[in-house]
Write a protein that binds this DNA or RNA. Sequence first.
DNA 1: AATGAATGAGAGTTCATTCAT
DNA 2: TATGAATGAACTCTCATTCAT
Lengths: 206, 206, 206, 206
Amino acid sequence: MPKVAFLPAGKREQTKLQNRNAILDAARQVFGEMGYDAATVRDIIRRTGLAAGTFYNYYRSKEEVFAALADEGARRFGPILRARRAESADFEAFVRAAIDAYYEFLADEHRNWVARRPPGEPHPHVQGETPETAAVFAEVRDAIVAEVARGAPAVDADFLAAACIAVARGVGDKMLERRPIDTAGAAAFAVGMILFGLKGLPRAGA
Amino acid sequence: MPKVAFLPAGKREQTKLQNRNAILDAARQVFGEMGYDAATVRDIIRRTGLAAGTFYNYYRSKEEVFAALADEGARRFGPILRARRAESADFEAFVRAAIDAYYEFLADEHRNWVARRPPGEPHPHVQGETPETAAVFAEVRDAIVAEVARGAPAVDADFLAAACIAVARGVGDKMLERRPIDTAGAAAFAVGMILFGLKGLPRAGA
Amino acid sequence: MPKVAFLPAGKREQTKLQNRNAILDAARQVFGEMGYDAATVRDIIRRTGLAAGTFYNYYRSKEEVFAALADEGARRFGPILRARRAESADFEAFVRAAIDAYYEFLADEHRNWVARRPPGEPHPHVQGETPETAAVFAEVRDAIVAEVARGAPAVDADFLAAACIAVARGVGDKMLERRPIDTAGAAAFAVGMILFGLKGLPRAGA
Amino acid sequence: MPKVAFLPAGKREQTKLQNRNAILDAARQVFGEMGYDAATVRDIIRRTGLAAGTFYNYYRSKEEVFAALADEGARRFGPILRARRAESADFEAFVRAAIDAYYEFLADEHRNWVARRPPGEPHPHVQGETPETAAVFAEVRDAIVAEVARGAPAVDADFLAAACIAVARGVGDKMLERRPIDTAGAAAFAVGMILFGLKGLPRAGA
DNA sequence: AATGAATGAGAGTTCATTCAT
DNA sequence: TATGAATGAACTCTCATTCAT
């Protein structure tokens, strides 16, 4: 029986993959709960149940796991964002598309790591801030800056990017606090705010 | 017979005040430079010149100094904000006034602690995040929520507050990165963004 | 009763001195038993009975304790050696004086730290090599080089110093292995060897 | 039916030999560069290119490789020394022959492992101390002790051996520091020193 | 036999906090 | 009340060694 292995599938490779994922998952949780600065490598290790030394077979430092996590996020989200951008006729359309995509991503992220947690345990500080979201943010910012530079009215591109990002993030964090998580509503709000300000907000209850 | 002190003016009380202030100043600087998480009580003590134990005569932990600092900011800024609020005819006016006041405060804060530093030393991460600004932020948010609840169109008050806050903070941080610090310009931008969105932004170069 | 304190004599200073000495003693022992390279800071700490952190209130690293120890040796022996050197009419006399002084020092060192040890414990590797002896060695070598450079026959000064040092040390180490420790005999041997080689050695049993 | 191998010449045996040698070579280099104490099994393995576990199929510890290395040196040098010894009419001749042989060996060793190193890399501490030299030393010492015991004037054999060894080693180390490496000169010096002391040294420049 | 990831003891070091002075 | 050394838990990281593959 010729098992064709497209991916390395020996037992060794399997456990390696499992461990790598265990570390990434643990890191995601720990960063989420305690924040990047407060988190320690030990916290991450403890959560994996692996031996102390094992961590260092995969990553050399807290910074490196963080980077790996961010990379993952960027790798997943980058293509999506770029596709939306290519489809957008103008800045307005792009903002709409970007915010939509970002909130989808955010909700997905959140679902995933909340779901993955053991149900009994408390999760004190659930912050919207994970390396993935940070990386995605960077992508969005770059896109906005580029768009603004390209066409758009002669506004302060830097301020505008900062403001858009800020609105998206601020509303996004609030969105994650509510149940059920309503990405469409949040997106409508954020887009309205960015495009028309106070005047363009969806009426509540409408 | 205990000397009755109507005002704490004895030598003892004086040094107590001095020490308290030394600690607060040091904490302000340290939090500003390294960020709250990375900062250690030791860092604060070192900058103070006081003995390690002395710190604990005033505050029980890093958290407590942080709170004290936040408190101070709130105490200074609260009255200002409330006055502006009373003077404002409508929400629009209030937003304008609040943002103005916040940016003034921000610039002032920033000036103070940058100025207070020994000139030769490097200050790596001048972050916009200090306990004071955080506290002030809380005030502004409360005010916005209240205003929104009071009158204003029937929008999602929570989202709106988050968005306003986010814009104010995002633009404010950018403002602090530029030289000279232009509070008026930043305020115009932020207000325009909040009230009218993209359409209401000041044209660059105008 | 006016206790005049020539040296700081508060209880604090006393314990500080005690701890510093405890650390130096422990380091001396540990270096002696395991050799400098194999020794760890933790080994030293363990032997003092102090807390781990306390070590770092006194020295920043293994290197620093070693330097302190070496310094101590040099400070004690340097003056002795220089005095002998000044009194010596020629190189021969100097060699004699230096070797004498060195072996006295060596025996003294050895006595001290063997005596200071708790009697029951085993001391596996008692080596002649301590930081103090190393420092003293450096002094002796410098002196020899200087003397050779000054007058002496036109021999290879570097080789000569190396050879003298080597003889002194080789014979010295053997001397420490014997009981009773006979510094006079060892010195006679070493001096004879250095000045006249095989031909000049004291006859055994004479 | 197991293939009977009279000489280990199968493929298996060949790689086994190769690995063993790879480990010994690596160990020689590592010990030479970092010193025995500082060297770790990991360092040796890394240089080998073999897997970590493979090391333990050949040696059980750092100590064991060291011993193997020493053994090798002794096995190579022993016969040479014994031959010289047999040829020597008296102690003087033996000393001369032994020192000559030792310095040849030393220079050879040194040449070999310095030459074997990749040329670009720095080699910080070229120490004269390798297991091989140590083993050879032991041989020389034994020979001296035996010779002294046999004939020779009634001197302290132990001290004498120590002194000869010390001179040989001291001068030898210095020799290795110079360029070009002059084994004849060093040998002349050491022999002169041992036989006649200061009076018997070769005049520099002669 | 070779491999190389997992293990966990242990090294160096820092830190918040206490407490005798 | 101020002092500052002592404390020991905790952190980062390395290493020798094992063992499933």
